[in-house]
């Protein structure tokens, strides 16, 4: 795939017997962009991410990844291009060892074993887990598990990286490592998060979702400074001054 872009055209989606969760989403993320997807809980962020590699398909409208429209027929191609990191790392680590987990994607791609081993080594190295190949997932800390989950996606050498709440439940050091890993990914990144500081650091552009719609598409720094009620709710700019702030007199 030569163009690692994501395009949503009037995408609607509703779960069975449920209300519409995506209500006519239009967006274009171009090659190499790092974009944050912000929004309150239940605004439709995760549902939107699941459309990108066809885990959910639109009820109406079209999602195009690279030059490929996402449909049942193109799932294999699309999933080779889009690496998705889920919110809960434990859901991604289901093999007996970290090495097997990281090799799961490349083996499904039908790569030869020597190439699988090379990719496993490189992916674990890039997330700081070199030498963890034979460790079971349950013996790792939360931060290491998150890193392993990311490695399991990086080993597929995706053109587009999609992350759902990657910094949730991480301590400061693990969060910093995660930011460094994502910053080192040179292709397209779409990052759904409540961690606005991470969004500011990693993503020059941000999309804001509310009730299944993209209600803002602007530079992240501009949104952070906005007094708009939705942006203020996301960036928490309406909060009172910290009580431990030094007295001004």
């Amino acid at each position: 795939m030569s163009h690692h872009y994501i395009r949503f055209s009037d995408v609607h989606f509703s779960y069975p017997h449920g209300p519409e969760v995506l209500c006519g989403v239009d967006l274009l993320i171009t090659h190499g962009e790092h974009v944050a997807l912000l929004g309150l809980n239940g605004s439709g962020k995760s549902t939107l991410l699941l459309q990108i590699n066809g885990l959910l398909l639109p009820s109406r409208g079209e999602v195009v990844v690279g030059d490929i429209p996402v449909s049942k027929k193109t799932l294999r191609l699309v999933r080779q291009s889009v690496g998705m990191v889920f919110q809960n790392s434990d859901d991604m680590l289901f093999m007996p060892t970290i090495g097997e987990d990281v090799a799961f994607g490349p083996r499904n791609m039908g790569l030869p074993e020597t190439e699988v081993e090379r990719r496993v080594g490189a992916a674990l190295e890039s997330v700081g887990l070199a030498g963890f190949e034979d460790r079971p997932a349950f013996s790792l800390s939360g931060g290491q598990r998150r890193a392993a989950a990311i490695a399991s996606v990086l080993s597929m050498e995706p053109d587009i990286l999609v992350l759902d709440e990657p910094s949730a439940n991480l301590d400061a050091r693990a969060r910093r490592q995660l930011i460094d890993i994502i910053a080192g990914f040179s292709h397209t990144v779409l990052l759904a998060t409540h961690d606005t500081e991470m969004a500011l650091e990693l993503c020059p552009r941000a999309l804001v979702m509310d009730a299944g719609r993209i209600v803002a598409d602007a530079p992240t720094a501009l949104l952070a400074a906005s007094t708009d009620s939705i942006a203020a709710g996301i960036f928490d700019t309406a909060r009172p001054a910290p009580i431990l702030a030094p007295a001004s007199n």
Partner: peptide, 23 residues
């Protein structure tokens, strides 16, 4: 619900119903 999430994570990495063999 958990099984559905695990299955999704597997599908996202190209799982097509066959578990790949280990070395």
């Amino acid at each position: 619900e958990r099984a559905a999430r695990v299955h999704r994570a597997m599908l996202a990495r190209g799982f097509d119903g066959t578990m790949p063999l280990s070395r």
